[in-house]
């Protein structure tokens, strides 16, 4: 079990990717375990052979083909820049901006100038109560005016010393 666990770390041991403590633990184990030491040797031989595999070099026209691609890509992007009106991305962004501006303006109008706005501002109830107060005041005044004739007559009778006040009339 110990060998199995340590064997899993052989590649990391070769690449020195283990912690200092793990490296020294592995070294101690390899010094006493021929099976793991054999596995380590075969790993090292494999790596040596693999590392000796020659690199593939780019073909002669690799760089030239690359710069042709860059030129094509640049040409593609510059043609879009030259005609911004036809740039769909730009058009979409502008369209969204205009739509948002219109919505905001319409909303602001309703908010400030209509009963929808009043409701939205939470003022409708206050306004209605003020209106009711106004109507009540008007009604009181109206009643007073309506009885003005009677009051004048009453005042006149008083001044004449006539106490014949109609009993069934009250203010």
């Amino acid at each position: 079990m110990k060998c199995r666990k340590l064997k899993d770390s052989l590649s990391a041991y070769i690449s020195e990717e283990l912690s200092e403590r793990q490296m020294s633990r592995m070294s101690r184990h390899l010094a006493t375990c021929s099976a793991c030491a054999g596995e380590l040797a075969s790993f090292k031989r494999l790596y040596e052979r693999i590392d000796a595999v020659p690199q593939v070099l780019p073909s002669d026209d690799f760089e030239e083909r690359f710069w042709r691609k860059v030129k094509d890509a640049d040409a593609g992007s510059s043609s879009v820049k030259a005609l911004p009106l036809f740039d769909w991305t730009l058009g979409f962004k502008w369209g969204v901006s205009v739509a948002v501006a219109v919505v905001v303006m319409v909303g602001a109008y309703f908010y400030l100038h209509t009963s929808y706005g009043d409701k939205a501002r939470g003022k409708s109830e206050i306004a209605e109560m003020a209106d009711i107060d106004r109507y009540l005041e008007f009604y009181k005044n109206y009643e007073v005016i309506k009885k003005m004739d009677f009051l004048i007559k009453l005042e006149k009778d008083k001044s004449l010393g006539d106490n014949n006040l109609p009993e069934n009339r009250t203010l």
């Binding site: 899993d8 590649s11 990391a12 690449s15 990717e17 075969s42 790993f43 494999l46 693999i50």
Partner: peptide, 13 residues
């Protein structure tokens, strides 16, 4: 990564 490289090494070996 440690596990991937170890298994690759064992497979190649």
């Amino acid at each position: 990564v440690k596990s991937l490289i170890h298994r690759a090494t064992v497979g190649l070996k």
